[in-house]
Simulated scan of single mutants.
Amino acid sequence: MMDIQISPDETDWNQFIESNSGPIFNRNEWSAICSIYGHKSYNMAVINDSGDICACLPLIHLKSAIFGNTLVSMPFSEHGSIVIDESINDRNQAVDLLRGKAQELAQQKGVDYLCLRGSRYPSSKEFIRLSRYVTFVVETNSSMEDIWDSFETRFRTNIRNSRDHSLTTQVVENEASNFSHDPVSSYYNLHLRTMRDLGSPPHAKSFFVNIWRKLGKIDGAIFIFVIYDGIPINAALAFPYGDTVHYWGAVSKPNYRHLNGGSLLLWKCIKWAQNNGYQQVDLGRTRPGTGVYKFKSGTNGQEIYLDDLFYFPEEISMPPDPEDSKFTPLIRIWRQLPLSVTEALGPHLRGNIP
């Protein structure tokens, strides 16, 4: 007999996620990070006869006058959805229980849609599957030479060119790391510039402070920097968890991009993953056909479509498409704003864009 439990013990929840190859974004820490924007979390677990968790689904409720009313698993990431103990016999029943409970919650909250990101399980008649994004996965369980040789020539050339400019790299693994700058502030300053140049609102600094505090203490977050003349010019956040390093949020100084620091940054992450025994690097959600897609494809990593499942309690109302031409005027205006303005206004917008 299986039953649904809401908000089970946090330690049991995290242990279940870790034991069953769930993404770091399903842990309680990520829900707590999302809460800085005022979002409420709902942890749903299927409990077996022994009182143990055998499947789980975290959800975050985002409600905004601008971006709508949604339930998402999980926001600000490309992964989430259901994690299940694959050894149980009645996996389909567990999946149905969680989806059914999530649909009930979606109806209670009157959301526009419920989204399960990166779902590993088949859709049903109630859910629509969308595959709008891909990720590239670079295997790191071979020698460094084999990994290097697997890259496309253009990617290797960019890394070589970056070395000609005397760029250096550093990984900040924890607060005890010997880094001459505050890693959160250094990353955030680059994040502000990058997002402004993209015409997109930035996260609040407290978002990154909480990532560092909550995930850093479980060795689940690292900063990677490219340094030029003593100044960080490229940076990325990465989340090592299980057998995978999730490469997340690469940022840069726009006037230094010609130095190819972005290629060196990604290469440093891949080397760090290989040196520390991880099996692969997940390069994160990317829309096919974009410049970022072309850049990441230079690693020759395995291209994997990310399947998102959508449930619409009422009429089908697709989430906004950032590539829609109707956003072009707003993007142009945002790019012209002073950083102080984007820093003040941006988090009120970004915090509601899942």
Score class of each variant (00 low, 15 high):
Gly284Trp: 05
Gln108Met: 13
Glu175Val: 09
Asp164His: 12
Val245Trp: 01
Glu126Gly: 04
Leu306Asp: 06
Pro329Gln: 02
Glu139Leu: 13
Asn14Phe: 01
Tyr241Pro: 03
Arg160Lys: 13
Lys294Asp: 03
Gly298Asp: 06
His203Glu: 01
Arg332Ser: 13
Ser297Met: 13
Leu57Asp: 05
Ser7Asn: 12
Gly118Asn: 07
Pro354Val: 07
Ile233Tyr: 01
Tyr241Met: 04
Gln108Ala: 13
Met318Ser: 11
Pro329Cys: 07
Ala221Lys: 04
Phe127Arg: 08
Pro58Asp: 01
Phe136Tyr: 15
Met318Thr: 13
Trp13Tyr: 05
Ile84Arg: 07
His39Trp: 04
Trp30Ile: 00
Leu215Val: 02
Trp30Arg: 05
Thr11Val: 13
Leu59Asp: 05
Arg120Gln: 15
Trp334Lys: 10
Pro23His: 01
Met74Phe: 04
Ser340Leu: 11
Glu78Val: 07
Ser31Leu: 15
Arg27His: 07
Gly261His: 02
Ala250Gln: 02
Gly22Glu: 00
Asn255Ile: 09
Leu237Glu: 06
Arg129Pro: 14
Glu175Thr: 12
Lys271Ala: 11
Trp267Glu: 07
Asp146Thr: 14
Val292Tyr: 03
Val292Leu: 11
Arg350Asn: 09
Leu98Cys: 02
Glu10Leu: 15
Val137Asn: 12
Tyr187Trp: 01
Met2Ser: 04
Leu259Gly: 01
Ile24Leu: 11
Trp272Cys: 04
Arg163Ala: 11
Ile218Gln: 11
Pro254Ile: 05
Ser297Phe: 01
Ile159Gln: 00
Gly242Phe: 03
His165Met: 08
Ser297Arg: 15
Phe179Ala: 10
Asp90Gln: 15
Leu237Val: 13
Ala344Arg: 15
Trp148Glu: 10
Gln274Ser: 14
Gly100Phe: 09
Gly68Met: 08
Asn89Cys: 11
Val171Lys: 04
Asp282Gly: 08
Asn89Val: 12
Leu266His: 03
Asp308Cys: 08
Gln15Glu: 14
Asn174Val: 05
Asp282Thr: 04
Pro232Ile: 04
Ser186Glu: 00
Tyr256Asn: 12
Asn255Ser: 12
Val251Ala: 08
Pro75Ile: 00
Leu337Gly: 05
Ala55Gly: 14
Glu323Leu: 12
Pro288Asp: 05
His79Tyr: 13
Ala204Cys: 09
Phe207Tyr: 09
Lys294Gln: 12
Pro288Gly: 07
Val171Glu: 01
Ile233Trp: 04
Ala45Met: 02
Ile4Leu: 10
Val245Gly: 06
Arg257Trp: 07
Gly51Asp: 08
Ala32Gly: 10
Asn352Arg: 12
Ile6Val: 15
His61Val: 06
Gln302Trp: 05
Gly199Val: 02
Asp85Trp: 08
Gly216Phe: 02
Asp308Arg: 04
Cys54Val: 15
Lys326Glu: 07
Glu343Met: 09
Ile60Phe: 03
Trp148Asp: 10
Tyr113His: 10
Leu114Asp: 07
Leu192Arg: 03
Leu167Gln: 00
Gly346Cys: 01
Pro322Trp: 00
Lys205Ser: 10
Arg129Ser: 15
Glu173Met: 10
Gly38Ile: 01
Gly51Leu: 08
Asp49His: 14
Arg154Ile: 02
Val95Asp: 14
Ser124Val: 08
Ser166Pro: 01
Gln93Pro: 07
Ser206Arg: 14
Arg27Ile: 00
Leu57Thr: 02
Phe76Asp: 00
Tyr278Asn: 06
